[in-house]
């Protein structure tokens, strides 16, 4: 603020003049803050919370052997890995496909609540939370990519791995939370700091 707007796309600082709505350098729309940041983030957040339920209760992949299928949920696949003695890889999948999405949903909710209720607390710490959420989101795609590799490799007629209905829901959760994080404007965290 302070009479300037920073262009989101090309980072140039533009002096606020009347009727100036596009950046003189890159022609993108100028906004002091992301437009409707809280509303959009909330919408994406609710969408992903809603889809998070089918993503976890339906099977993400079905291991079918001679006609009989063995459905596997996200949690089931991790338990199988850990039971099979592959603890480190099991933990990687646990972090990427259970801890990261659920912590992200909680984290984004907390960020929204902080801005909405103007909680007075260390804004720097909240910015760090935002940065972690924004960085970590894409790693949840791990499960989806793995599914595409497994569905392709394990296909021997009688033995095959088929993607389950949870796959679409889970991919949607990951993408919606990425959109939620993208639409959240961290500068809002600093706007309602009264002192400091």
């Amino acid at each position: 603020m302070q009479g300037f707007i920073r262009c989101d796309d090309c980072a140039c600082l533009v002096k606020i003049v009347d009727q100036l709505s596009t950046c003189p350098r890159c022609d993108s729309h100028l906004h002091a803050r992301h437009p409707h940041s809280l509303q959009r983030t909330t919408a994406f957040l609710f969408g992903s919370i809603f889809l998070y339920i089918p993503a976890n209760i339906f099977p993400i992949m079905i291991f079918s052997q001679f006609g009989s299928g063995e459905p596997n949920t996200i949690a089931g696949g991790i338990i199988e890995l850990i039971d099979g003695g592959m603890l480190p890889i099991g933990l990687v999948v646990l972090v990427a496909s259970i801890l990261v999405p659920s912590c992200k949903l909680i984290g984004i909710s907390l960020l929204l609540l902080r801005v909405h209720f103007r909680w007075q607390s260390n804004a720097r710490r909240w910015t760090v939370l935002y940065r972690i959420i924004a960085f970590v989101g894409r790693w949840s795609m791990l499960d989806i990519f793995m599914l595409s590799i497994l569905a392709n490799l394990v296909d021997f007629g009688s033995i095959q791995i088929i993607a389950g209905p949870a796959a679409t829901a889970f991919a949607a959760v990951v993408i919606l939370t990425m959109f939620a994080a993208k639409n959240f404007d961290p500068r809002l965290l600093w706007d309602n700091q009264q002192n400091l």
Binding site: D9, M86, I89, F145, M146, L150
Partner: peptide
């Protein structure tokens, strides 16, 4: 430049590599 800037986050090759590793272990 603007397109590149917006695409940055959706290029997920390194995530794919990690999923190759996990798939191989499985």
């Amino acid at each position: 430049m603007r397109w590149r800037h917006h695409l940055d986050e959706w290029v997920m090759l390194e995530v794919y590599l990690l999923s190759i590793i996990v798939a191989c272990v499985k």
